[in-house]
Simulated scan of single mutants.
Amino acid sequence: MPPSDSAPVRWRKSSRSGANDSNCVEVAGLSDALAVRDSKDPDGPTLLFTRHAWSSFVADLRRC
């Protein structure tokens, strides 16, 4: 996580994921962005998106 974000990061999975399902992405809200990671590799790379970019992505998914 970016060092400028000092609050603890709370990762969450989709409510459609099963409790033991590890084939998911997890999302965490940061102060000025959203972080996304692979639930199978929580210490691996993290993608950061602006809130606007994430909202546009989700809106596009809903149109599919």
Rank of each mutant, 00 (worst) to 15 (best):
P2S: 15
P2D: 15
P2W: 15
P3R: 14
P3W: 07
S4D: 12
S6M: 04
S6F: 03
S6P: 01
S6T: 14
S6R: 13
A7N: 07
A7L: 01
A7P: 00
A7S: 14
A7C: 02
A7T: 06
P8V: 01
P8Q: 00
P8L: 04
P8M: 05
P8F: 03
V9P: 08
V9D: 13
R10H: 12
R10Y: 09
W11N: 02
R12H: 05
R12D: 03
K13G: 01
K13M: 03
K13I: 01
K13N: 00
K13C: 02
S14K: 09
S14D: 09
S15G: 06
S15T: 13
R16V: 11
R16Y: 14
S17Y: 05
S17E: 07
S17A: 14
S17P: 04
G18R: 04
G18E: 10
G18M: 08
G18I: 09
A19E: 13
A19K: 09
N20S: 11
N20P: 03
N20I: 05
N20Q: 11
D21P: 01
S22G: 12
S22N: 15
C24R: 02
C24V: 11
C24Q: 02
V25W: 02
E26P: 02
V27G: 07
A28K: 03
A28L: 06
G29D: 14
G29H: 13
G29A: 14
L30D: 02
S31P: 05
S31H: 11
D32E: 15
D32N: 14
D32T: 14
A33M: 08
A33Q: 10
A33G: 06
A33T: 12
L34K: 05
L34W: 01
L34V: 15
A35Q: 07
A35V: 01
A35K: 03
V36H: 09
V36R: 10
V36D: 10
R37Q: 07
R37S: 12
R37T: 08
D38A: 04
D38Y: 00
S39A: 11
S39D: 13
S39T: 05
K40G: 03
K40M: 06
D41N: 14
D41A: 04
D41F: 00
P42Q: 04
P42D: 05
D43Y: 06
D43I: 10
D43P: 00
D43F: 06
G44T: 07
P45K: 13
P45S: 15
P45R: 14
T46V: 15
T46S: 07
T46P: 01
T46N: 10
T46E: 14
L47G: 00
L47W: 09
L47P: 04
L47N: 06
L48I: 12
L48W: 06
L48D: 05
F49E: 04
T50N: 03
T50S: 15
T50C: 05
R51D: 00
H52I: 11
H52A: 15
H52T: 15
H52P: 03
A53F: 00
A53Y: 00
A53G: 08
W54A: 11
S56R: 12
F57K: 05
F57I: 05
F57V: 04
F57L: 13
F57Q: 06
F57S: 06
F57A: 08
V58M: 05
V58F: 01
V58Y: 03
D60K: 09
L61G: 09
L61H: 08
L61V: 08
R62C: 09
